[in-house]
Design a protein around this nucleic acid. Structure first.
Lengths: 160, 160
DNA sequence: TTGCTCCTCACGTCACGTGAGGTGGC
DNA sequence: TTGCTCCTCACGTCACGTGAGGTGGC
């Protein structure tokens, strides 16, 4: 181990924030809801002092945050992680579920873009007094709106 | 005009919700914040009665809602709309701004997906005890995390 | 009387962000 | 004494959703 070479010290909340990319308020929030373990305090100032071990778990949490994962899912992931390497398969599964969620989100946003495209075309047709296009674009918008509604309720179901 | 043929009547909040795709609670909410004009009430029951004109504006609002537009932007769009067809160019501009926002969102979600891909590959390498891959994937994850942070602050700036 | 739709508050949701007001050590 | 970092509440944000408790007309 090169622990003897590496400096062993603890970190302020500001340093921890810079290293992890999580804001100080997020760090306090995650601790308050028990997503990360209680951080030891300086005896006199009562300021948080993050150990190297704390930093590891904060960084892991920041990773999950970066994937856009919900807090309940992050909790499950971190619990698995604490149980050791045996659950590496679980980690992968949770990550891939999150990936599917993101894929759904992309599809949904693409639908919204298509909807906007139709709306823009519609307004151009209105401007150009093109009654035929106006009619067909109105129908297209109607169909897309129905798709959007079902896509939204589908992603709601997924979240639940 | 075929107004003489079309049945002229008003609509309950339930009917308006079904037609527009907005929930009843959203309809009440939009009215309470002045996004849509105050709806006339039945004199005795005090229930909302949506006129055909109301329905037009509700449907227009539902369209914007379907694009994922923020309420302040919807407000601007609807104000323009009320000022007549002369501002069709403004409508198109607002819609295209929204489209760019959505494009940014897709980029952001794609980054998150990439990040997950790297994490999954990382866990597989850990499982397979592939130290070389672990090291290179750790570095990749680090770089992507930095990209994600800047992408997030960029989209924050955009929103402001 | 029973059902139905509708009503108005008020509070809940999600993941934090933002002050206000105060403290410890240089 | 001044600055600095840090602290703890409590309330704000965004766009609604969800009850609770009540009303009017068939």
């Amino acid at each position: 181990m090169n622990r003897a070479v590496t400096e062993i010290r603890d970190y302020s909340i500001q340093e921890t924030s810079r290293i992890s990319g999580l804001s100080e308020s997020t760090l306090r929030y995650y601790e308050s809801i028990g997503l990360i373990d209680p951080i030891a305090r300086d005896t006199s100032s009562h300021h948080r002092r993050y150990s190297e071990r704390d930093l590891d778990s904060v960084i892991a949490t920041a990773c999950l945050n970066a994937t856009g994962m919900s807090i309940p899912d992050m909790r499950a992931y971190l619990r698995n992680r604490a149980e050791g390497a045996s659950s590496a398969a679980d980690q992968i599964e949770l990550l891939e579920r999150q990936r599917r969620r993101l894929a759904d989100e992309v599809v949904f946003v693409r639908l919204r873009q298509q909807y906007i495209d139709v709306k823009v075309a519609y307004w151009r047709a209105v401007r150009d007094d093109d009654a035929v296009s106006v009619r067909s674009l109105t129908a297209q918008a109607h169909d897309l709106a129905a798709l959007l509604r079902s896509a939204r309720s589908a992603s709601d179901k997924e979240a639940a």
